[in-house]
Design a protein around this nucleic acid. Sequence first.
DNA 1: GAGAGAATATGATTAGGATCATAAAACAGG
DNA 2: CCTGTTTTATGATCCTAATCATATTCTCTC
Lengths: 197, 197
Amino acid sequence: MIDENLLLNHGAKKVAFSKGDQLFREGESALNFYQVASGEIKMNNYNEEGKEFIQGIFSIGQSFGEPPLLANVKYPANAEAISDAEVFQLTKEQFLQLLSSNPTVHLKITTTLAKRLYYKAIMVSEISSQEPEHRILRIIDYLKHVDKVEGEFNYKLNLTRQQLADLTGLRVETVIRATKSLEKKGELQIKKRKVYR
Amino acid sequence: MIDENLLLNHGAKKVAFSKGDQLFREGESALNFYQVASGEIKMNNYNEEGKEFIQGIFSIGQSFGEPPLLANVKYPANAEAISDAEVFQLTKEQFLQLLSSNPTVHLKITTTLAKRLYYKAIMVSEISSQEPEHRILRIIDYLKHVDKVEGEFNYKLNLTRQQLADLTGLRVETVIRATKSLEKKGELQIKKRKVYR
DNA sequence: GAGAGAATATGATTAGGATCATAAAACAGG
DNA sequence: CCTGTTTTATGATCCTAATCATATTCTCTC
């Protein structure tokens, strides 16, 4: 997370989006740096059959879309507002200028990328490993960790079964059945249809 | 890729490993920065049933293992020498010192991470998308791109079917059948058992 | 060039998640 | 409170990659 004033000093614009709006699409050139000011943004792909895969969900203070900007490639996914949302937006030049003028911020961005890479490395091996229950537990644990929640069943998962399915590459029905089975095994709790872990 | 002399000036050691040696294991603390001097290193996971998943294969000039170093987390995978290999090794302190004293190198590392994140984003959505043939084509295209090869069937894939399986999370038999099917469809060629794309 | 080990190949069977169909419960908004 | 929509739930069937078994081809070394 980069300090708001620092962003504004480097020419950031605050842009508002309504729920469902797309900020950019897969295949487009990466032109901007984004940091969420309010609301939630998801990055996702749709495969040939229209099935969604959610790369990540970003909320206040989190930045997204930097990799293609830095790697000089097209966006590998779409960005869409899950709720009404505002984002700080910097052009590529402004962003690179910010990085070079502020080593601390640069290191912070590098660290953020490293963390995400760490997460993706886990996800990709976990997803490839097949077992639905594993996939689900791992992503829940990751989200719990991100939200810095400690202790058993203290973490309430704020995702629908469908979103969980889209994050793991599974089907809703499979997620529903798997979460129930995991509850039976004592790995998680379900109260009022919400998952706790 | 960081210049060899620059690495040595910052206290890098050149360390030799024999084929099959492990440089570090999943779950260990990240202590060093690594860059391949010769040979090839793979990063991999083994799941409960002992099935291997290859996170990536790194050859001369490529660095690996930075994410956990920067993110301050345990290694998410093992590193193992595929062939006899030498690597430059920097301690965490030396590496961070190098980054802070040399913004150009820092940006290069950031860019490298961004590229890998881009690749992982594609792989994770592709792997989740199921279809074996897709997964295989995508990873081949990525490797071709990394090796900067252009033109149809100009790229010779230097991987065994088993390695391809471990990179995609599929089984050898599935990879063998899928590559044959892809050859039939004209998506790739197989000459002397080697895959060309 | 013979023999051993690795890699590729191929058929038969199984298993488990996707898919399809349908229902019921929760929720939002007037 | 009623109504339409979203989310969760559950059974039945299908399909495809995993698994198992076995064979063939290639490669490397002595």
